[in-house]
Nucleic acid binder design. Structure first.
Lengths: 207, 207
DNA sequence: GATTTTCTTGGACAGTTGTCAAGGAATTTC
DNA sequence: GAAATTCCTTGACAACTGTCCAAGAAAATC
């Protein structure tokens, strides 16, 4: 800790922080591939260009490394659909765009989301990640809600469910098709892309 | 394997199978408490009345024990809401009953469901459980669909979403409130109980 | 009650894990 | 270029893991 700051002030730039970033990246790579239960420090080091000893130079212990990695993971995770929101000009466009974006996410980043669900679950057993995971989950919820609110504007309608329920719905949907997708069902992404617009409509449906 | 069957034919009753059941029970206890990543055979043995060596007398290896346990887990998991379906005589009764049942499940069996989500996630990394997990997931989906179909009868309405989407919705809902519940939010179960009936209605809402 | 079979224990094994420290590279500082 | 500092490797450690086995306890069989 104190070492770190001394180094920063000495060498000028934050080379220390940069290495942490780099090692966290390797950690995420290993975690996404192997899952939390099977990821060891030596495995992480092997994904990087360094030996296993270096991890304790940049991180106090495994928990700090993983916590840092989880936080880093957030960046990729919580702004994913903001472009779709910004670019859509009609309700229908937003529906389709949202569905397509989720399908694309499923296709290209399946292993990273598998990791996300793994970490969220670990936080139910282990106190250490809980705060970070809950924060990421809140931001994901907010991200979904931005889509819903924009749709409300464009369709001039009122969402019939709460923020939490909207998030639960789309998250559940994604997770469900993730399971299918990773189990080898090739049509999973397409199915998700088709299901999403219908669910969006349904959330605004009034009797 | 062959040993097992010889014993059964000799001693008459299935004492062998009984012990397997008993040890699987201890395994589930340990898994629910600690999570997959932190559950060792010695930990499981400690939950039972036996020493760690006995596990390899009744199971070939750890994978077989865990697979057997996962299958056993299924029993509790896939018929949970059938009573509600059987007893409800009006659509509104079913709505409320379903919500109350999910809330009760969240209150009393949170750790077991934490385990379920953990195992389902493990199956995304490890081939060995995948088939069993997918089968349980299918049965859970069918269980939810029985609720939906019964509601359709009682309300004389048509569900506006597919079986998969209906399951994803309620499963996502439950999981979301499970996270909150285990994080210490005391109102989580009540909130879930209130959210469910509204979501049920929404699934049948036609524009 | 003796013998055979079934069951259970406890210890040993080889491998893996997180952690740490000594020493050597590499780099900066003067 | 010498000295000081920062960075990284290597090997060691104790604890833990799944697995296996010898030997004794318990039970069934005769």
């Amino acid at each position: 800790m104190t070492q770190a700051k001394e180094r920063i002030s000495r060498r000028g730039v934050d080379k220390f922080a940069q290495r942490r970033e780099q090692l966290a990246e390797s950690a995420l790579q290993a975690l996404a591939e192997l899952g939390y239960a099977r990821t060891s420090l030596r495995e992480i080091a092997q994904k990087s260009d360094f030996s296993h000893g270096v991890l304790h130079y940049y991180f106090a212990d495994k928990v700090e490394l993983l916590t840092y990695s989880v936080r880093k993971f957030e960046e990729v995770c919580v702004t994913r659909y903001d472009d779709v929101v910004a670019e859509a000009h009609t309700a229908e466009e937003l529906e389709r765009g949202f569905g397509a974006a989720m399908a694309a996410t499923l296709r290209t980043d399946a292993v990273m989301h598998r990791l996300w669900y793994d970490l969220r679950n670990q936080s139910l057993f282990e106190e250490s990640f809980r705060a970070d995971v809950l924060e990421i989950d809140d931001r994901r919820q907010a991200m979904i809600w931005r889509v819903v609110e924009r749709y409300a504007e464009l369709a001039d309608a009122v969402p019939q469910v709460s923020e939490a329920v909207a998030y639960a719905t789309f998250d559940g949907l994604f997770q469900q098709f993730l399971v299918r997708h990773l189990a080898g069902r090739e049509t999973a992404a397409d199915e998700l892309g088709e299901a999403v617009p219908r669910v969006v409509k349904q959330l605004f449906c009034t009797a």
